[in-house]
Simulated assay, not measured.
Amino acid sequence: MDEALLNELGQRLDAIPDPAGAGGLVANGRIVGLTEKRGRIDCVVEAPAEGAAAFSALVPAIKAALEAAPGVKEARVVLTAAARTRPPKRARLSEAATEQTRRAAPVPAARPEHVRAVLAVASGKGGVGKSTVAVNLACAFARLGLRAGLLDADVYGPSIPLMLGLTEAPEHRDGKLIPLEAWGVKALSVGLLVDADQALIWRGPMASQALTQMLTQGAWGTADEPLDVLVVDLPPGTGDVQLTLVQKTPIDGAVIVSTPQEAALADARRAHALFQKTGTPVWGLVENMSGEIFGRGGTRAEAERLGAAFLGEVSLDASLRQGGDSGRPVVADQPDGEAAKAFMEMAKALAGKLR
């Protein structure tokens, strides 16, 4: 961002009093992200958990202050909440929200409002096609007539925007993030809040906080039209983000994705153990990339060994890669293909378990 514009915005934001104490928003370290792209400003404001309501009321004033600056065409304000572990320090505004690495304790969360069921899609190992499975399952639920949502919880490597063809940032309205819609699915991702080429340099607690905020602040449904299922695409592994989700939010079930070879199955066992230890039902395992290269049947055998259901296999197919890269999931764009049919069968089996 241009230095002059950065300073101008900083002065305007610091002229807004901090509802939680003496001083302005910048001086008290409330502005944790400020980016500019073609005249659009994205601003991330961190409020104390106990005073989030007062900051929510302040969002229109922040937006107006930013849009009054010369050269600014539009401003979007995203509010997060965190319990501070030490007093705020005065710091120069950062150009990227992802450079904010102060530790923040995750905010306890209940089931997302107006969401009937939450389904986590997980893998112990990266690169097994977990996001591909999550996207196509969500689209398959939508094709079955269910109101489906997709939350990209892989905050360090968000790929859902690319796979769904989404580029715009979500709006912030009445204290809620408004999910974008594609292929009949409502979606939120950190990748929609920062530039695609920015590295997310967040400590574990900040990543967990991002997940909690998207869960609790996402306008997923209404009392009249609740979301039937929210699919959560978890990052690989068994770290902070996974623990935040299973400990803070009631999870109805989890699906574990693996490729057939032992290197991936060993990590799938660890993911299964995490869900067992946290009391999260595992609704089944999915074998992805079946075929000559990685083999076939390893995930089915592992599911039997673990006493879990085997939901099906998806062959290694160029159409899956092409659909993901172009933002056209095969379930929606090529419904007659073998891969799409496999995902539809999985969705039918899982739909029977939804509340």
Rank of each mutant, 00 (worst) to 15 (best):
K130W: 08
T280K: 03
D42P: 01
D228M: 05
L192G: 00
L245Y: 10
A339Y: 03
P60K: 02
G184Q: 03
G33L: 06
R143I: 12
A49W: 02
R143V: 07
V118A: 05
A109K: 07
D267Q: 07
Q247P: 11
T249M: 15
L5E: 07
E67R: 10
L119C: 08
A271C: 04
L211M: 10
E99T: 13
R86L: 04
G352S: 04
A339W: 01
R30V: 12
I293C: 05
F275N: 03
G253Q: 11
V107L: 15
L58A: 10
D14L: 04
L137C: 06
D18K: 06
L164P: 02
G191H: 06
D197Q: 14
D152Y: 00
V255K: 01
G23Q: 07
K176T: 06
P70Q: 13
H114K: 12
T259M: 01
V44P: 01
A219W: 09
G327F: 07
G145I: 06
P112C: 11
L243P: 00
V26N: 04
D240W: 06
V77F: 01
K348M: 08
R102C: 10
R90A: 14
P335W: 09
A263V: 11
G10T: 02
E95T: 04
G297E: 03
V286W: 00
G175W: 00
N28Y: 07
A20G: 12
K37L: 15
R269F: 01
V190N: 08
W183M: 01
L285D: 00
E95F: 10
A332F: 08
F55G: 00
V155D: 02
S290Q: 08
G239W: 09
G24L: 10
L316K: 14
A83P: 04
L311H: 08
L180Y: 04
G324A: 12
T35S: 15
G10N: 12
A96W: 07
T249F: 06
F310R: 05
S258T: 05
A349N: 13
G184M: 09
P235G: 05
L234Q: 12
